[in-house]
Design a protein around this nucleic acid. Structure first.
Length: 422
RNA sequence: GUGGGCAUAGCUCAAUUGGUUAGAGCGCCAGAUUGUGGCUCUGGAGGCUGUGGGUUCAAUCCCCAUUGCUCACCCCA
């Protein structure tokens, strides 16, 4: 029979490496909470309409990358391709705006995009994200960026590049788009096919096209940062000043245009050379118009998302996970035969009850094999029980690091281990 | 959707212009040590060379198809 395989673009997280994820997730959660963010979980599937309205019908994500299907009642559902739209839907639906002040939320979860697979790009992948809802102030933008950078630094990542830009708001962006189109119009024929399509629908996306001729044309193009209105300009300046005050280095990239339609004012991205061609570790920005688009009251917000798989790729390439190891048992109980195992079971129960990680032989192997197993598991101590020990109602306790061995009564063993385990 | 690369033991990889029994390291199991891990030594298990077809006296090697993986284009995390 043909074995069934996992679906392309999905991955098993095996016990051999899950501790790395736990390490990353624990750190992320701890830091998010230090900054006052609380976890939000939302369903992995939503009404297709949510993403169409929130992300934008013309974006690549919505137009060609969504896992969409009809449920039995004929409703169109979609596996979430990102979570900001879901979080804002939940925020509106549960009237979180009524609580006053801002809502600071984080999430870690699976996202789904039906794309071709390559390095750092899967069909089911995971994001850590932050949403700071309800503040129009530049300090909110700065806070989420500080949180993002601090977190990456806490993993030991130093030389990642932070790129920021302002993409304007509903007043100055349309004006800039016209200026850009006026500049590009005489060169329309030289643009690549996709950019010719973008010319009317989303001219700003031409700015980050990687086609060579498009790039040379764009090089001389008017940049949005020269055409921001006073409000956006002041906001952008404040964000930059705050980042400088926070000691965070950044690079202004007037060609940074993110692929989701909801961004306003600040947009930012962190890139790394370790990722191959999909070089974005994470990115985000301000989305002051999204809540209205989803049927809520105007609510200025800012957030970001980081790809966990990509983060782990970088950590691995830079050898920053070498010291991260799975938890090893404190004690391995090696027994000769069934009666010895029976005699040890109450002790094992007691030790585990005390939170001491304890293993007992499950295969009835030779003592030699059991010792090898204990060593492989990295156990600090091994207890050996046989007829000799049973006769004296005791155990032999071996320290695996020093090789020392001593005879202990059952009570002494429990007392010793509750004092000496780490 | 489009292109390139790869597919041999559990893992990482060899195998001469096509030539006899497809090898190594690591890992696994066992013994040396009949009640004790690591280090060392010895032995062992483990392969339809991804699948199907073709060329040939002969195919892991050449050709075609197919599946899977991977990298890249577009876009994104």
């Amino acid at each position: 029979m043909e074995p069934i395989r996992s679906i392309k673009g999905t991955q098993d997280l095996l016990p051999q490496s899950s501790y790395r994820w736990q390490f990353a997730e624990n750190k992320i959660k701890a830091i998010s909470e230090t900054y006052g963010y609380r976890e939000i979980r939302t369903p992995v599937f939503e009404s297709t309409q949510l993403f169409k309205r929130g992300i934008g019908e013309l974006t690549d994500v919505v137009s060609k990358e969504m896992y969409t299907f009809d449920d039995r009642g004929g409703t169109s559902l979609t596996l979430r391709p990102e979570m900001t739209a879901s979080v804002m839907r939940a925020w509106i639906q549960n009237n979180l705006g009524q609580e006053g002040g801002v809502q600071k939320m984080y999430y870690i979860g699976s996202m789904f995009r039906a794309e071709n697979v390559q390095k750092g790009r899967l069909r089911q992948f995971h994001q850590w994200g932050i949403e700071l809802v309800g503040s129009p102030a530049p300090v909110a933008d700065a806070e989420v960026i500080m949180l993002m950078i601090r977190t990456l630094e806490s993993f030991g990542l130093k030389s990642l590049k932070l790129k920021i830009n302002s993409v304007g708001d509903e007043n100055c962006r349309p004006v800039y788009k016209e200026i850009l189109k006026d500049y590009l119009r005489p060169h329309f024929d030289q643009l690549c096919k996709t950019c010719q399509g973008r010319f009317e629908t989303n001219p700003m996306r031409i700015l980050d096209c990687k086609n060579e001729t498009c790039k040379t044309l764009i090089h001389q193009a008017p940049v949005i940062t020269d055409h921001l209105n006073d409000e956006c300009k002041t906001h952008f300046e404040s964000v930059k000043n705050l980042l400088t005050a926070a000691g965070i280095g950044f690079e202004i990239d007037p060609f940074l245009v993110r692929g989701l339609d909801y961004y306003t004012k600040t947009a930012f991205e962190v890139v790394s050379d370790d990722l191959g061609s999909q070089n974005a570790v994470g990115g985000g920005g301000r989305y002051d118009l999204l809540v209205e688009q989803l049927g809520g009251k105007p609510t200025p917000s800012v957030g970001f998302a980081i790809g966990i798989e990509r983060l782990l790729i970088i950590l691995e390439e830079r050898k920053l996970l070498e010291d991260v190891k799975p938890k090893a048992p404190v004690l391995f109980v090696a027994a000769f035969a069934q009666p010895h195992i029976e005699a040890m079971i109450p002790i094992v129960q007691q030790l585990r009850g005390l939170g001491i990680q304890t293993e007992i032989e499950l295969l009835g192997r030779s003592i030699k094999a059991q010792m090898r197993e204990a060593d492989r598991l990295g156990a600090q101590f091994v207890v050996v029980v046989g007829d000799n020990e049973m006769a004296q109602k005791s155990v032999s306790l071996k320290n695996m690091k020093t090789g020392d061995q001593q005879q202990l009564s059952f009570d002494q063993l429990v007392e010793f281990l509750s004092g000496s385990h780490e």
